[in-house]
Design a protein around this nucleic acid. Structure first.
Lengths: 346, 346
DNA sequence: CTGAAAGCGCTAACAG
DNA sequence: CTGTTAGCGCTTTCAG
């Protein structure tokens, strides 16, 4: 391994001079700097980053803690984070938790081991305690797509509530009044926010909320599939004419089940999802859905974290990103009319 | 930050003793060891890993270089690698290249910076030169789903050729004789191997290879979509009765286009894909496909790499994993008959 | 069984 | 402008 001492010897200067030359210290004369750079090139020198990390107290790595990564949803977050970290010269260390408590804690531990300078977290709310402690110790942290109320921890989130409301409003504008909801698991904050948006849109249109039109799912394809059977247990006259599913997987599961039961989408029942995962575009029928700015949320989180690591940010920040409704076939787009302007936006 | 010196002070021993006690050196007396561990616990000590890395010359991290990660295909590889690295106490550093030359080289550089102890590589063949050089320097490397002939570099791969042959054989067994191929890009080795398998299966069944039944795609949904138009340009009497697509995305694109043209799958034309990506199961119709042992390939690669980092492996290893045909709706499974036994297996 | 001391490769005062 | 000298936190001889 080639070290600055080798270069120092080759050039005939002190190794500290080499260090300075390499780091662009303005005090070094142009002549010696060039000699040093020259020698470094010839010797094919590469700085040893762990050593530098030890001396500087900064490893130039950030951790990203996600529950899963075989879901493209998370994959895109990782990609968004990566883009920013790479450009900033940071390494990206990935911790996949499978939503497991032990793994989450193990990931958080890594920062105390000095393996990363900061972390972007997508973990279960229950970890609030451990996270708050780290925060107390001044560890740079950013919560992604979640927040811990009153913790003062930076967060980057998506406006789930207004996204859901927009989707439901679109259905209402399409003439629907019996709009079912397949919700996410109640422990998931985004699931709850989407329910809120659903209710807000109904309220706003003066449509009463009806419990029998709401089925709880768990964000899985299978749960969307089953939800349809629950919804269609009622006499056909009381069936919903539209379904808003709190994510695309459930929307697709629902459509699959509807197809099996001989119910055409969107003709008989319209369906809207949430997330805009890749298959949504080429599902049969293609899925109308609420697009989350996933890549962007990853990028923003990384930018915020790095800014904080570099001390460029002081006060807590909370970034909320907007969603976008993507209209495709499954909602019967053709029927959509202009949104009524009578009521104020939520 | 709590260091071993703090512990040493608290217990009243030298810091080297603390180091030894913490690392389970058998020479340390039970009494002092316990005192040290006790103090470490009370002070909430965590070893500083970068410092240890500097002293030991090993960072306990491995790099994983992938072109993309929003594709679940790669996501599952990452997950497979992660499972093994986590259990072994290694950190996983992710490098996403977007198949870009600069990014690939930048990732390879990281190892010379001492940021990882070894790397799992999914990069373009063209990087062979740079990779071989690293290999020369004794850097632990494992090639995943590819190999560089004659390089002596460890690799973990999937038997694409026999997987493709099995798929085509299944179609032949189903009574098909005009079987089209939508191939992958010719620069991709797995694409080439799948072509080989396609031809082998035809040969074996005594069916002549016909150029007009082969269309080149690029592994994208869109290219599968377009390929159908190319294939159906011939008079209907010469249309294929089955299509083997070299991956699932193209298979789905093809099915989508067939549906648009009013051609039913599998009734009019059967389709088989390759990969078994998640949407394959709930596509409409569900997709018959060749499952790659993706998670397993990631795990194997990580195991092999770690073994090599730890010096447990000397001679070059080449691991080849088997695929599995997953029969669903798109191939007209019902018609499948027993595979003819007249010919020897490939 | 334990302490003293050197050193991993680099950075950063402190001198000059 | 550059050299000297301490470390960063940990491991690892070498003594004793």
């Amino acid at each position: 391994m080639v070290t600055i001492k080798d270069i120092a010897r080759a050039v005939g200067v002190a190794h500290s001079t080499v260090s300075r030359a390499l780091n662009g210290d303005p005090r070094i004369s142009k002549a010696t700097r060039e000699k040093v750079l020259q020698a470094a090139r010839e010797l094919n020198y590469r700085p040893n980053l762990p050593a530098r990390a030890l001396a500087r107290g900064r490893v130039l790595s950030i951790g990203l803690v996600v529950p899963d990564v075989s879901e493209p949803f998370y994959g895109r977050i990782v990609a968004g984070v990566d883009r920013v970290t790479f450009d900033a010269g940071f390494n990206l260390v990935l911790y996949i938790t499978h939503a497991d408590r032990q793994r989450e804690l193990a990931a958080l531990e890594q920062i105390r081991h000095g393996r990363v300078d900061g972390m972007i977290l997508m973990i279960r709310k229950a970890r609030a305690q451990a996270v708050a402690e780290l925060k107390e110790q001044g560890v740079p942290l950013v919560l992604l797509l979640q927040k811990i109320r009153g913790s003062g921890i930076d967060s980057v989130r998506v406006d789930n509530s207004s996204g859901a409301a927009e989707a439901v409003r679109h259905l209402i504008d399409g003439g629907h009044r019996r709009i079912a909801l397949i919700s996410g698991p109640s422990h998931a904050p985004d699931a709850r926010e989407r329910i809120k948006g659903y209710r807000a849109a109904l309220d706003q249109a003066g449509i009463p909320y009806r419990e029998e039109l709401v089925v709880r799912g768990d964000f899985s394809f299978a749960s969307g599939f089953r939800a349809v059977d629950a919804l269609l247990r009622a006499p056909a006259s009381q069936w919903p004419t539209a379904i808003f599913a709190a994510n695309d997987h459930m929307a697709m599961g629902a459509i699959k089940r509807l197809a099996e039961r001989g119910i055409a989408v969107p003709r008989d029942i319209a369906v809207v999802g949430f997330d805009d995962i890749a298959p949504a575009a080429y599902f049969q029928p293609s899925l109308t859905t609420v697009r989350q700015p996933i890549d962007e949320s990853g990028r923003k989180a990384a930018e915020l974290l790095i800014a904080r690591i570099q001390g460029a940010v002081q006060e807590p920040r909370e970034i909320v990103l907007k969603t976008e409704l993507v209209v495709r076939e499954s909602c019967g787009a053709g029927q959509a009319r202009e949104r009524p302007r009578a009521c104020a936006g939520s």
